[in-house]
Design a protein around this nucleic acid. Structure first.
Lengths: 235, 235
DNA sequence: CGGTCTATTGATATGTGTCAAAACTTGTGG
DNA sequence: CCACAAGTTTTGACACATATCAATAGACCG
């Protein structure tokens, strides 16, 4: 988040001085449960977390994938009653629970920090809007390519690998849940991408052998992930 | 937006004193163009506006429908480079363009106003997350029912009608663009809902004759549209 | 009263879901 | 180090929802 905003040293120090309770969450275990009032937000320290909605029949749709360094559930600071679940994905996830009380004290003391957090929520919303486009108007192959590109760019930016070579600790069924399709179909799509020489997977490692081709196959334009400084960031 | 947050009279007055340039936008005309840096956000005064993303092949996906009273493109206050378009829907739309400069001055003078705007962005994100679920995991009929329920609740809350009887100045093709489907299929789905006695349409008026049934058909649970006061809204 | 949108309908094509089973991994305990 | 269990990936055959193409009918507007 700190990359997205311009903050003074004092403000950065204030953020870093936040204390929280560390917790390790087992795969498939809830970090946040829907319908609850939460009084903390979580920083993902390591691993992957996913936010998702669930239908009565049990089908689930992942609405966000959070990587290390993401503040997940920052939304709840403004709307404490959450309507979704957040779970650890495949591996144990380490999170830091930061009480809302401390966060609010911080944002009220430093308006620029409030704006940084606010900007973070907006960035999350921009990705969400892309996901709507993805799921609504792209076919399975495009969707998959698009998501893999998005995750690559985000991973690289977070210092977790290169955009064309990163580790995604996630299972095909979960990928399918993020892309609104069936695990079976997910598998066939991935096979197709591999057969076309766009990517190689080994274990949980993704190696995009032809970035340009994958980006083209997904209609990926990374603009929505850029957060260049506007002229009016600071007072 | 003012309904979602608790503000003092002074703060409310400050918001209401914002001045902007009024403008009328013809149907299908852009309010905001993608790739631009904007220096204002828009309040929708009357009519409907839609935010959408576009694919190279021309297909579009609506990612938000803004009704009168909505602040559209508030996102751009935090990320001025917008990656989407916002257009007027079927009828002329009246908007009020409020310069970012004034908005920033306001939020920096009144932290509670900043939080109110921030909360507004988060509310938009909550709807967006629901749309991902909608498009990703519900079939055409459910999706349609769900959206009609959502719009009903939002219309009612905005004082623009009743949840089961409101005017939606929108064309079937645009509804299809919001739901990620074909105009032809959209038409068949609406016919189905009518034949099942769930709703009646006349002109642009929607009359939901059996709210409970429509909500059930859409798996609609309005929780994500509720913004009850948390205990820590004010200092 | 003709022209341009919009809504409606039909026939057919296709992408994706569903069901079912086999092959492969990974981890665990003997 | 092997054997087994549980989870994951892969494959096939088939069903079904939705897209596509094409045409007609109706609404609205100048």
């Amino acid at each position: 988040m700190l990359q997205r905003s311009v903050l003074t040293e004092e403000e950065q120090a204030a953020i870093c001085s936040l204390e929280g309770r560390e917790a390790g969450i087992e795969p498939h275990r809830d970090i946040v449960r829907p319908g609850e009032h939460t009084d903390y937000s979580c920083l993902v320290v390591s691993g992957l977390a996913a936010r998702f909605g669930q239908l009565r029949d049990g089908h689930r749709q992942i609405t966000a994938i959070h990587i290390a360094g993401d503040m997940c559930d920052l939304y709840s600071l403004m709307l404490p009653k959450v309507e979704w679940a957040i779970q650890a994905l495949s591996s144990p996830v380490k999170i830091l629970k930061v009480p809302h009380r401390d966060l609010l004290k911080l944002v009220r003391a430093y308006p620029a920090v409030a704006e940084a957090f606010w900007r973070d929520c907006v960035a999350d919303g921009s990705i969400l809007a892309q996901w709507v486009v993805n799921v609504g108007r792209r076919d399975a192959r495009m969707r998959t390519a698009h998501l893999l590109c998005e995750l690559g760019v985000r991973m690289e930016r977070a210092g977790l690998g290169r955009r064309d070579a990163y580790t995604l600790d996630i299972v095909q069924t979960q990928l399918a849940d993020a892309l609104g399709m069936t695990p079976v179909h997910m598998n066939r799509i991935i096979r197709g991408l591999r057969e076309d020489g766009l990517l190689v997977t080994r274990r949980r490692d993704i190696h995009i052998t032809d970035w340009a081709a994958l980006a083209a196959a997904g209609g990926f334009e990374g603009g929505y992930l850029e957060y260049e400084d506007g002229p009016h960031r600071r007072l």
